[in-house]
Design a protein around this nucleic acid. Sequence first.
DNA 1: GAAAAATTTTGAACAACGTTCAAAAAATGG
DNA 2: CCATTTTTTGAACGTTGTTCAAAATTTTTC
Lengths: 202, 202
Amino acid sequence: MARKTLEKREDLKLRLIEAARNRIAADGLSNLRARDVTQDVGCALGGLYTVFADLDDLVIHVNSATLKALEASLTLTEVRDHSPADRLRNLARGYLRFAVTHRNLWKALFDHRPPDDRPSPEWHLEEHMFLMGIIAEPLAELQPNMSETARAIRARTLFGAVHGVVSISLEGRFVGLPIESLEQELDDFILTVAAGAAARQA
Amino acid sequence: MARKTLEKREDLKLRLIEAARNRIAADGLSNLRARDVTQDVGCALGGLYTVFADLDDLVIHVNSATLKALEASLTLTEVRDHSPADRLRNLARGYLRFAVTHRNLWKALFDHRPPDDRPSPEWHLEEHMFLMGIIAEPLAELQPNMSETARAIRARTLFGAVHGVVSISLEGRFVGLPIESLEQELDDFILTVAAGAAARQA
DNA sequence: GAAAAATTTTGAACAACGTTCAAAAAATGG
DNA sequence: CCATTTTTTGAACGTTGTTCAAAATTTTTC
């Protein structure tokens, strides 16, 4: 029966993802080794390549799980009856908190570069889109007379800005700063952007 | 005489940096190979390790040169008698233009991760600081009653934001967009931040 | 249920890296 | 010109990701 076979394959796949996730969370993406994860799950080295195309494919699946966790974390903090600026601030805070809490997994989302001849599959690229979507909503409220496409681009810009601020805060040289200061700085930044958007809107 | 020896060492060093720079510019950081650069300059494989600690050390020197070029490019476009917002916009534009023009060298600045047990030397970390310094000046004019340290942090935040916007614009999926649109979007973003800063200042 | 056929799993072997270091080559100095 | 020191060399090593013929297992057939 092909039934049992498929199930076992799927089970191995999940266990490999879980093992890789733990390895990345503990030691960082750059220390992920095919030999380690296969030993962790108790299969042969070659077993990995019966379920994934290569290591990058496995990493993509780990990143996919991380994105789902991030999505769950961000949509949880969404409160619909707050002002747009407050909602944007909450999203930025949530993003910062997630990055701090799951440092290595979060870093893996952006440190991972698939080889030139094997770019990320379409389904994974689309997983990044929910981030833009989440931002687009409060943005629409903030600048209602903006075209749909312009707002999509602006959401991407805003995400890039927040991600950049969080990145440089966590990876830079000022990492001695307490998390509260980072949050305060990020809050200020978001409120500044929101104020500017509102001002230029009028 | 130790004179000639030192000169030859220095010459080899420079030639290796130049070769590595060309390789990175052409094929990207991830395709840089010790065997390639040593062949390019016509020395033995081991010769590289008589002048640099390892490949990462060589990359750091390439990045150092890239930062100098970026600095030259940005300070050139600085015009002191413009408004703070205009100056910030010019800096952001210059940054975007540099990233577009020297795509792979610019990417190498941030893609390169030295191994955990061998972080970047202090002198190289300080080279990144001029970027913050350049930003801090117009920022001081924009928000004069801000403390020195707060402004330093804000400059870092602002750089992170601009870098994030440029990154996501160039590496994301919307790369079909013409450069003019990216520039327009970045302009808008900067002016929004500047407007917000001015508004919250008052 | 045993033998044959198909499938799955294995891990030794391979190629491509960065890095090392004993030996060769070159430079120095007396 | 030879001895000594210094510099350069590239074969060899350790560690990667990846492959694939063979072993182990499962399924099918009679």
